[in-house]
Design a protein around this nucleic acid. Sequence first.
DNA 1: CTGAAAGCGCTTACAG
DNA 2: CTGAAAGCGCTTACAG
Lengths: 347, 347
Amino acid sequence: MAAIRPSIGPMPGPKRSAGNRRITIKEVARAAGVSPTTVSLSLNGRAAEVGVSQARVEDIRRIASELGYRPSLLGYSIRTDKTRLVGALVRNNAKERFFNLAAYEFLLGLNERLEAADHSMCVVRLGDIEDEAASPGRLFREHWLDAVVAVGPVGEDLAAKVNQAVPATVLLDGAFWRDQRCLMRDERAAGRLAAQSLADAGRKRLVWVPGVRRASRALEDRWQGVQDLARERGLPLTVAEHGYVAQVPEADFVPEAGLVAYNSVVASRLGHLAAMLGRRPGADVGIASCEDSHELGRTWPELTRVQFDRFAMGVAAAEMALALIADPQADCPSRLLAGGLIAGKTA
Amino acid sequence: MAAIRPSIGPMPGPKRSAGNRRITIKEVARAAGVSPTTVSLSLNGRAAEVGVSQARVEDIRRIASELGYRPSLLGYSIRTDKTRLVGALVRNNAKERFFNLAAYEFLLGLNERLEAADHSMCVVRLGDIEDEAASPGRLFREHWLDAVVAVGPVGEDLAAKVNQAVPATVLLDGAFWRDQRCLMRDERAAGRLAAQSLADAGRKRLVWVPGVRRASRALEDRWQGVQDLARERGLPLTVAEHGYVAQVPEADFVPEAGLVAYNSVVASRLGHLAAMLGRRPGADVGIASCEDSHELGRTWPELTRVQFDRFAMGVAAAEMALALIADPQADCPSRLLAGGLIAGKTA
DNA sequence: CTGAAAGCGCTTACAG
DNA sequence: CTGAAAGCGCTTACAG
């Protein structure tokens, strides 16, 4: 006798592991003895609006939770053309993978604000779309993202590409200014402020320590600010050598000199160099940083530095993105943020 | 006369902004004069297998790209029940938001490997599911994730919850050991190694600098390792006070003493403290760190520390996750990684 | 070699 | 007050 086999329909459907069977809205409907329509309406709080009885709603709610029903956002998304997913564009290629770990603080702020609005954040590597030939990031290709926040030094060409793939695009700490959808720090003011703290402390000459070779808007602007101040105060200004690890000659670790660190990594480097030389920052040499990071607050709270709240900027960028998702034509005037000086003891 | 209005079907479909109309497979099919089936087959490289002629395939490819067709993964996902999205669980709540910024290095490694396999990474906050009452993370609720990598101190209860929501779960640098799907560093060995470098350098007593109050497996294990070595070598061992910013009495910055930093943040703090006191690490006091970070390599390459390649661990975790996506029953033996000593000049 | 059709899990306009 | 049906963009078993 032939074995009895269940008849198999034309389309068996996706295989799921037995232990993880997904409960769908249909099954909830069957269990509750109503239609999928009623379940959907009840679960989405549109019951009153349409007029489903309160008792039914509670019944359905209870049954859904007993069954362990969790809505599939895929169903929702394909229907509404919204994924509630926002991409965070970050630089992460082989060469400059660790270029700026402080970027993570931006991401934390972004993520926090997005989750509060029931959206989620996906990380997309910048290298992906910079070079069209290289795999251009499936998230972009494949219509996953409701919006994108580009984090870090993104130029006009790249921004245009991103914008084409995902119209709702915000630039956070980007490489150029535009009047809309752009969040930047006033780097020139930051450079000036750092240099000023050293001049005010009585240093007789300034040393600019870029630490990195790579040109960027932030570097150029901070450098401009430092030059501005040196000129105004009539202070001599020299430049330390660049390199992967900043090196500054011992002759510059002297009380007359004020070292201006380009960013928080370089600042920390200067502190450690001073330690290795036995020179006390503040007492034996002046040090100030154009940039702050949360980590500096924990590792070197005494450092004189210009404030930079990346977390708050991430939150602000998320808000722009959410506004654009709600209304693609939303007015999002750009913001240029000025950081104050954290006084410290090292200038 | 009444204005002529286009007849409107029962379901107008999602609204898209005019400038951003999505090209679907149907439109490509129409333009190419074939059926959607043929387009799908051709574009997914299954043409030869099924027997679509080479000429047709090239035709379709060309037309699709002329039209600017980009497949919607939503369509693919709902059909196949795979999103190719992997969640990275990170700790980000108001209290411990910046607990360990170095976690970002894990994420970079994860992301890199996932993208290479055409998957993407979404960041999910840990706080979301720790407290059921708090919004429990839509990504978990809503069947978005093919796999999850939990990053950082995740305990057994939490791991069980995560596992229930998403069966394919990997623990990266978690709070407990298990034989499968777990990637950890041998912290006890790390503590021992750091302490040993100081003993070998001739320090007569050791000072353990935890820097943080929060207990964790990593902290306990490193502390054990330090104690092991102190006992073996018969060296006195004291503990510095905890706090948000590590403080160590000036009396401990002396040549007889070897300071053992719990992690890279504390190590950096010790370097800056030494600087402020005018004591030279290595010459005037011994300092070694149980942990390394990429940033330390740039800010304090001279530091004696135990290696910790988070990027590589992120890559390894991504590989486990991918294996589990391919086969939910895949054998993923856990790995305990031992870091070597980076000699440096400060012990 | 190719196409019509079913179906994934939802939402919603429409008809009762 | 409630349900049957259409449709979002795909993939694939099946029939020609």
